[in-house]
């Protein structure tokens, strides 16, 4: 081993060069599309059908004159799903404000409270009804998962919202909340990228936004260049992965393993 290589190897893990290359490519895709979006180029994103379901839920609450409950999951602001949820919350607030329906937002993490307050406030301002904003409707419940769940269940049972919107990172509480919401007869729309919780939302909710659709929804609604660029970048990365997978499987079938072994990480 040459001394230079030895010196570099203590700073640079040559075994993981494939990680660097793939990460570099992914970053390049995302930066490219963010740039395109910033320049004003229109980037096509298909409409997520879950959005119609949200509108329908708001409409139903308006007809019934009952509140809408918005649950943003149980993770903190460092979780991207919570960030996406806050963007959706802003848009939901705009819809809600137009119809004069109360919006209740119980929160699990203290850091999420000011962000939710801001999102709701902006939503009311955008809808031209800043006076309708009521800070007391954004309530911190508890950091503890099942204490929060018990609190939210209490709200569902006592305030009987007409619609429950659940977007964010959910764990074992998902089924308990969705089941309670179902029992109160509320129309329910949910979305999470936590794959293991999706089955419960699928069975207990009227519409479910699955996995990455949650991020796509937030990008679609906000039209924010960074979000749109990331979505388009990850779409291109997915396309590349499909090509790599097909090629890798074909070569493996014919006994050529060199291609797939490049992706092996020690």
């Amino acid at each position: 081993m040459s001394p230079i290589f030895f010196y570099l190897s203590s700073w640079f893990d040559f075994n993981r060069i494939n990680v660097l290359v793939i990460l570099g490519l992914f970053f390049a895709f995302v930066f490219y599309f963010i740039n395109q979006a910033k320049k004003g180029k229109s980037l096509f994103v298909r409409r997520i059908s879950g959005l119609d379901a949200i509108e329908e839920a708001v409409g139903r609450a308006t007809e019934m004159g009952k509140p809408i409950l918005y649950i943003s999951g149980i993770e903190d602001m460092d979780n991207l799903q919570t960030v996406a949820s806050m963007i959706i919350l802003g848009n939901v607030t705009e819809m809600v404000a137009r119809y004069d329906v109360p919006l209740l937002v119980p929160i699990c993490r203290p850091f999420v409270v000011p962000v939710a307050e801001e999102a709701v406030k902006q939503g009311y301002i955008k809808a031209g009804k800043p006076d309708a904003y009521d800070k007391n409707n954004i309530r911190y419940i508890s950091d503890e998962q099942f204490a929060y769940t018990a609190g939210v269940n209490g709200i569902m049972l006592r305030e009987r919202p007409a619609a429950n919107l659940m977007f964010g990172s959910f764990f074992a509480e998902s089924l308990i909340m969705a089941e309670t919401g179902f029992s109160t007869g509320a129309i329910q729309v949910a979305g999470t990228a936590n794959i293991h919780q999706l089955p419960f939302f699928v069975v207990a909710c009227d519409y479910t936004i699955i996995g990455e659709e949650l991020f796509a929804t937030s990008a679609y609604l906000s039209k924010e260049p960074k979000l749109l660029g990331s979505l388009k970048g990850s779409d291109l990365a997915k396309f590349l992965i499909i090509i790599i997978l097909i090629l890798g499987a074909l070569l493996e079938t014919f006994g050529i393993t060199k291609f797939s072994s490049w992706f092996f990480v020690r």
Binding site: R16, I22, L23, I244, L245, E252, T253
Partner: peptide, 21 residues
Amino acid sequence: IPLEMQQRVIKQLHATMLPVH
């Protein structure tokens, strides 16, 4: 990010390139 990419994408990608017959 590098570890997520390594563990959730690249290793899974490698494990999915399987001979089909």
